[in-house]
C-alpha cells in the first residue's frame, strides 16, 4: 500500500537549495504525487504527461535508459526510473548545482525503490 501523505512528505524533502519541484508518475504519465511551486494541479499533470512522453521517446532510441537531464531556458529537469515502472523527476533552478540535483534525485529514487517495487510487483 502507498500512502499519499507519506509520499508527499518524502518528495518534499528534496525541495531545497535550488530544487523547486518533484514528481512521481508512471510511464503513462499518470501523476501519483507532486510537490513544488507549480500551484495549479493541471500544470503538474501536464508536466508529468510531457516528461513521460519524452522518456518513452528516448527509450526507443537508447536501450537501458537510466536517467535523463533536460536543460531548459530557466531550469533543469532530471528524471530517472524507479522500480522499473515509475518515473521520478526533480526540477531545479538553472543556477542550481547539477551534481547536487542528481545526488538528490538518486538518493530519493533509492529510498523509494523498495516500497514501490513491493506494491507494483504485486500488480503483475
Amino acid at each position: 500500500m502507498l500512502k499519499q501523505k507519506a509520499l508527499i512528505d518524502v518528495l518534499g524533502q528534496v525541495n531545497t537549495s535550488g530544487v523547486d519541484g518533484s514528481w512521481l508518475f508512471n510511464k503513462d504519465g499518470l501523476l501519483l504525487a507532486y510537490v513544488g511551486s507549480e500551484q495549479k494541479e493541471v500544470a503538474s499533470n501536464v508536466s508529468a504527461a510531457l516528461l513521460a512522453s519524452v522518456w518513452t521517446a528516448l527509450e526507443r532510441r537508447a536501450c537501458d535508459l537510466r536517467e535523463s537531464i533536460l536543460v531548459l531556458e530557466d531550469s533543469t529537469i532530471a528524471f530517472t526510473l524507479v522500480a522499473r515502472t515509475m518515473l521520478l523527476a526533480v526540477k531545479a533552478h538553472k543556477n542550481a548545482d547539477l551534481g547536487m540535483v542528481r545526488a538528490k534525485l538518486h538518493s530519493l529514487s533509492t529510498y523509494l525503490e523498495q516500497p514501490i517495487l513491493s506494491i507494483s510487483h504485486d500488480l503483475i
Binding site: 499518470l30 493541471v42 504527461a49
Partner: peptide
C-alpha cells in the same frame, strides 16, 4: 487506446 495521456487532455481542456 492507452496513447492519450490524461495530462494532455487536461491541457487541451484548459
Amino acid at each position: 487506446d492507452g496513447n492519450e495521456k490524461v495530462g494532455f487532455i487536461d491541457h487541451n481542456f484548459g
